[in-house]
């Protein structure tokens, strides 16, 4: 992992299109601005992990569970 030291107000460039701006440092909190193209998604890691974890759980669904769920939910035409 590359470790850089930056001061408040300084930036980091990743490739041509991604810029990370250190907006403010106060105590143990850093306020960071991120400029990235629309097709690059940026999330707080904990949010990203929560969605990832839920996707993993959803992917465990079995045909039997689907059958039981479908019976409870009913048909599209009902």
């Amino acid at each position: 992992m590359l470790i850089l030291t930056r001061k408040s107000g300084e930036m980091i460039a990743i490739g041509d299109e991604i810029k990370i701006y250190i907006q403010e440092i106060r105590g143990n909190q850093v306020k960071i601005g991120i400029k990235a193209p629309a097709d690059v998604t940026v999330h707080r890691e904990e949010v990203y992990l929560r969605i990832q974890e839920e996707n993993r759980l959803a992917a465990k669904a079995t045909v039997e569970q689907m059958q039981a769920a479908a019976e409870l939910v009913g048909s599209r035409n009902a």
């Binding site: 039981a68 769920a69 409870l72």
Partner: peptide, 9 residues
Amino acid sequence: ILSLRDDPA
């Protein structure tokens, strides 16, 4: 996306 469990409820 839905997460299913053995109890559909």
